[in-house]
Design a binder for these strands. Sequence first.
DNA 1: TCGGCCGGTCA
DNA 2: CGTGACCGGCCGA
Length: 524
Amino acid sequence: MLEKREVLDQITKIPSLHMHHAKPLLRWFLARGVDIRALKLDTAIAAYLLDPSDNRFVIGEVLSRYTNWVFPASQGAQSDQLDFGNEANDVSRRSACDALAINALLNPLNDALAKQGVKTLYYEVELPLVRVLAKMEHVGIAVNKKALTSINDHLIHEVQKLTGVLHGLAGREFNLNSPTQLREILFEERKLQPGKKTKTGFSTDAATLEKIRDQWPEFIDPLMRYREFEKLRSTYGEGLIQSVAKDGRIHATFNQMVARTGRLSSDQPNLHNIPVRSDEGKVFRTAFVPSDGNMFMVADYNQIELRCIAHLANDPGLIEAFTNSVDVHAVTAARVFSVETKDVTSAMRAQAKMVSYGLAYGMEAFGLSQRLAIGVDEATKILDAYFIAFPNVRRYMDETVAEARKRGYTVTLFGRRRPIPELNNPNFRIRQAGERQAMNSGIQGLAADIFKVALVHIDDQLSEANLESRVILQVHDEVIIEAPPHEREQVNDLVLAAMKNAASLSVPLEVNAAWGETWADAKA
DNA sequence: TCGGCCGGTCA
DNA sequence: CGTGACCGGCCGA
């Protein structure tokens, strides 16, 4: 009988491992000091890449999807089921089933990957990424719990004050967090003129409150501040404190099989939506800190999705803007509003920015008019002007939708597919939603692919250079590295180069990098 | 207890 | 009537 240590060491000597959903197991081994590098196939990840629209990746389902075999049903095995007799459904039986299933899936999955033309994407990007993510989860991110608690205490105080004020103004106590009870106060007792409706009644969301504010500003104003503070308190204050593990760090999970565009997602907790826009919210980022003696490097792509559009649409104006410009939104505004770049006002720039990003999401005149608070006719003019300035963008959008409808799926530059059956749905609204998804997935998907390549390369090159620095966190187009100060220059160069060179587009990939003592500090 | 809904945070 | 996510709270089943 081998000692436990020896068993773990034996694992590292296995040259080739095939697993289903390997990340949790890799992380389990990392917690015991074993870094498994031999993962050669992950059947769950393969199934995801083959069809990211599926959300069931348990091995039994993948097995029946890609082979003629099925897992034994609880009632008893049928002829073409994996059959281990009538033994109890215990762990060893289950493990044997898994092993057989993985083996049975090897060829079918590899064939399917080859047929879709995504073997490179799988073996060069998705598969190595599994271990990178396992390491990120294992290491986690350190949290200054005192700072976090103090932020939360402040929020509790503010929420309490505002609760008292609002109950006083309403004339009675009620649950401020209940849209139902809030509706009673606003629209029944106070007879405010309501805005838009939801499925269950009149809306009380921030945009609506803004519109009806003037009818009762002394209530609406503190209500909106209450909403802001209560959101920060419950989700980030209480939520993050709860998530801090015994080692003083937060170990979120980074899910590789959720987002239909190829992006990663984060949960338990979600570290992808830590506040940054409002002053009250972004203080949470001061509580995220490097391990003792280290610094944070934060590097993020500059407008990567717009650069993806420039490349995919092959639009001369957009490519020129990204190749030569220091301020693409200003250049876009100049072209859209037919003025000299130097004469672009901040309002024009903001509108141009909104148009650019809106396009990436398939936005139309109505949507633009809502966001810019202008008339639909004016929004139409702006969009028309945009498409005159950047004609290939419209052509790209049209062709992308047409091809996706014909094939039933979209394909990114790197070959990642996404089925969009809604494109042929008889329901107009559903079909239109499918069109927006089709327009967006090539863009968001390419950005995701590029970022994943960068992540794998960064991790690879950090080990290759024998550096202590390590990837801690990822937020779609941003990576956070924990680095000892003496590695700063080397890491800075390495990370920037890896990100810029992750793909070769017809526009350069620009990366901003900053160093600091907290996540909040490391902002360029 | 669970799931749908509302509202809100991020890229 | 802009894409992609996750989460806390409410509320009815």
